[in-house]
Design a protein around this nucleic acid. Sequence first.
DNA 1: ACCTGAACACCGTTCAAGT
DNA 2: ACCTGAACACCGTTCAAGT
Lengths: 211, 211
Amino acid sequence: MSKTHPISPRKSPRQARSIVTVEVILDATIQVLLTQGLALLTTARVAARAGVSVGSVYQYFPNKHALLIAVLTRHVEAIIARVETVCREQRGEPLESMGRALVDAYIGVKMAQPDISRAMCALPANPEHDAVVAAMTARGILAVCDLLASCPSARFHDLSLVAATLCGALIGPVDMLLKGSIPIERAAELTAQLEGLCVYYLLSVAQPVTR
Amino acid sequence: MSKTHPISPRKSPRQARSIVTVEVILDATIQVLLTQGLALLTTARVAARAGVSVGSVYQYFPNKHALLIAVLTRHVEAIIARVETVCREQRGEPLESMGRALVDAYIGVKMAQPDISRAMCALPANPEHDAVVAAMTARGILAVCDLLASCPSARFHDLSLVAATLCGALIGPVDMLLKGSIPIERAAELTAQLEGLCVYYLLSVAQPVTR
DNA sequence: ACCTGAACACCGTTCAAGT
DNA sequence: ACCTGAACACCGTTCAAGT
């Protein structure tokens, strides 16, 4: 049996100052994570950096992990929102355009603040953490499903598997870029490779529709 | 400044019983990780499960993290070894064969003990952890580079980027399978998708060589 | 040469007391 | 309604003492 980590805030802030406190604590958490690393990220240090007492941290977050989950959720939300937007914008466009737009947008958001993206990768996994990532992945796959379904000139057998494969094929290489397995200077070339990979894959699994 | 984690064994076992002790400790670590989870993985619990004292753990591993790194290294070594073997076996074969063999082999090892693979994903990242993963990734990319270079009928502009993209495009979707974002029952279908994705990508970036 | 386990420092978390 | 910080339990790590 694994220890359970309640992640919902202990209480919702009701006054302006406490809303600020929550934001301050979340920002402090990222700062400590970035400057000190996970090993030195203690609730005491976060509190000190935020300029509040440990007790205040525990007033809004039931435990340390909830703090990390909150930071992760915030970051992941921004990424998925961007992906969903492009997917909406590209509805009905040709497959080539869809592929390129998706790749560009995803690399764009992920690499916008590389250090924060990297810090998120370094968070220790646990059931709640996995749930957040899984939920975001599911939303991404769904958005891509809708996008592909909107293609006027093609249909896809096993749409959701194609969408999932596409998402995975994007996430994997971009993670390599993030972690340095592909040098960051080569971001532009990787973008080109991924655009090609996505477009050729989509064209290969697309079943032409003639009306 | 992030805390440093020396990861080399405190001492090399010189007698038979101590070699056994090290193995026992590593196995116990995996067992605790699998049955109790990372949150309950304490050096005391590992020692108890291994049937030794805490002191013995620290005789061979400078700290808790080194223990996790050792377990990770062992697992990752098995995976990369398999990949390198297929890459060697497929030298000179047609691109279609290469792509299929690589996909099958990678999915095969990764999904051989899914729970252990999952547990490895859940380890907290730190510089040494990242270094192990980066080193394994680099070996994978290199093996694929060599494989692609051996193709008699095609050359690749920017070989290493193509190899890295290919590896990433494999790792991403298989991670989804591992984490449940793609249902495990669909492993066979995903394999087919990835074979197609890899082969079409390779064919699209290959520059035919006629002699 | 290897093992033991009490001892110490530090971290997560709580809660009685304050404003 | 929110904040403080001393207090407590637990974990990582050490090291003097054993075999």
